[in-house]
């Protein structure tokens, strides 16, 4: 039998072992000691240095296969595709660096969808802000029907703010990537304006609408409300892992609710790695002038060209 004293001593010793790492050394001594020593030797204050930005690595050139049969041939073939090739493995799993890069790219894509265009940008650009009937991002991604409709209050705002019947009405919509708007809008708007000048055309930069929770067909309702001749709609695309900053421009001649999709003219893939914003702006201006000339858009415009 263990008496009370002994029991107490035992409890004390167990508690000690649980809280004091030095008393548990016996079993793991051999392993722990050198590690501790090494730690002592290398413990340093955090420095101001920054780790390399893994998202800046060019995937087409990144090559992790240790002993390839033909390194040069591999790199040549890899340069032909944006696919994540030649990144090797640990066991059957991914290398840490390629796994982290994948996660970083996915994080950027998700953040682009579920974040909002900053208030500062909307103010700075002097946009007139309205919203569709979606109450939040969740409803936005699950209810495509609501992302094209406006309530009475927003309709009133649009009707009050857009005076007369504009020849060219510019709209900006967050769509599926707020990052796309943040990345491209400041460059593309002046470029469109500049481009339009060449055709003696213009749009009112004080009357640019910004739509929160916007789907593409929202432009049709704006067309009806403003009676604009051309609606030019810049909207964030569904992001992929290659870029989260891709924007599209949808243009239509006198769009109306329920019109066929084929009446839209679209320029997609507007981002620094695709069609740069400045270039896209010039192209949009040219399209606008053609649409005004032919009074058509989409497939109808293609047919007359």
């Amino acid at each position: 039998m263990v008496d009370k004293q002994e029991m107490k001593a035992m409890i004390v010793s167990i508690l000690e072992e649980m809280t004091d790492p030095s008393s548990t050394e016996s079993a793991t001594k051999v392993v722990e000691k050198p590690i501790n020593k090494q730690e002592e030797a290398t413990v340093k204050e955090a420095t101001e240095e920054v780790l390399e930005d893994i998202t800046q690595i060019d995937i087409r050139k990144q090559f992790l296969v240790p002993h390839p049969a033909d390194r040069e041939g591999y790199l040549k073939m890899k340069a032909k595709t944006p696919a994540r090739l030649g990144l090797w493995r640990s066991g059957p799993r991914y290398k840490t660096q390629s796994m982290l890069r994948f996660r970083a790219d996915h994080a950027a894509a998700q953040d682009a969808v579920f974040s909002y265009v900053s208030k500062d940008l909307i103010e700075e650009m002097d946009f007139i802000e309205v919203a569709t009937k979606c109450k939040d991002k969740d409803e936005y991604v699950t209810r495509p029907d609501l992302g094209r409709q406006f309530d009475d209050e927003n309709i009133a705002t649009i009707q009050q703010q857009i005076k007369g019947t504009p020849q060219i009405q510019v709209i900006v919509g967050d769509g599926l990537s707020s990052a796309a708007i943040e990345a491209n809008i400041k460059e593309i708007l002046p470029s469109i304006k500049q481009g339009l000048k060449m055709f003696d055309l213009d749009y009112d930069e004080k009357a640019v609408l910004f739509i929160k929770h916007a789907r593409v067909p929202a432009m049709d309702k704006i067309g009806e409300l403003t009676k604009a001749e051309i609606v030019c709609y810049l909207i964030g695309e569904r992001p992929g892992l290659v870029t989260a900053e891709s924007m599209s421009a949808y243009l239509a001649y006198r769009p109306i609710v329920g019109m066929p999709e084929a009446r839209r003219t679209v320029i997609s893939n507007i981002h620094s790695g695709g069609t740069p914003a400045v270039e896209a702006g010039a192209y949009i201006a040219e399209l606008v002038s053609k649409m005004l000339q032919h009074k058509k858009s989409g497939i109808d415009l293609k047919e007359v060209e």
């Binding site: 696919a83 994540r84 090739l85 892992l241």
Partner: peptide
């Protein structure tokens, strides 16, 4: 089976 699970054409994983 897709390189690193990322489809660079269809833009999904």
């Amino acid at each position: 089976g897709i390189p690193h699970g990322d489809d660079v054409m269809l833009n999904y994983q």
